[in-house]
Amino acid sequence: MSTRENILGRVRDALKRKVSPQDTASIDAHIAAHPLGMQPLRDWEPELRFRARAEALASTVEKVASLQSVPGAVARYLVVNNLPTGGICWPSLRKLDWIGAGLGMEDRPARGDDLVGVTGCFCAVAETGTLMFLSGPDTPAAASLLPETHIAIVEAARIVPFMEDAWALLRAERGSLPRAVNFVSGPSRTADIEQTVTMGAHGPYRVHIILVG
């Protein structure tokens, strides 16, 4: 017998049963129903909660009226913080007028020495101030990870209350999971040395969120 059969056989022995189709039906039904678990009390408005949580996790947040205003906002943020005014962006953002805002944004895969990465996001989770990213040809995962500064564009209308709502949105809009789903809550950090929190462990040192809408 194979290792697989041995392990599953021992698990079945431990559970004292032989598999019947009915057993499989019970777990399949649970998965198909995917009932909601416990969520914290919701006594907040999603956008306000999202902002407060994201800022508590050391992200910075600003809001602009429309997508057209985004390049200008990105430029202001980079200049004010004395950061390079060029970098990479998701291919899905290539049509924004970066040049008009004085920025050199390349819609190519991120490299190890890129300093600024601009991305969109799939949606945001208010409970924890979290951004949700789906990998894909136009939304590569490395763009939000390799650069020292990550700027994320979030449609305010796509702030959902809980992670479970994000799954519901994903099921409704995509049907299945992409290769990678990344939830990001602020700049990369570590507390490995003397439990002292330090930003910029391996990922971005700073995350700037631009809400649109």
Binding site: R53, L57, P109, A110, E127, T128, T130, S135, G136, P137, P140, A141, A142, S176, L177, P178, R179, A180, V181, N182, F183, V184, S185, G186, P187, S188, R189, G203
Partner: peptide, 21 residues
């Protein structure tokens, strides 16, 4: 922490036309 900085789910290898993974 209410959530860790990163929560990552991986489902299968790199898809067609993806530039990373």
């Amino acid at each position: 922490q209410a959530i860790t900085n990163y929560v990552s789910l991986h489902t299968g290898p790199k898809r067609l036309e993806e530039t990373d993974g």
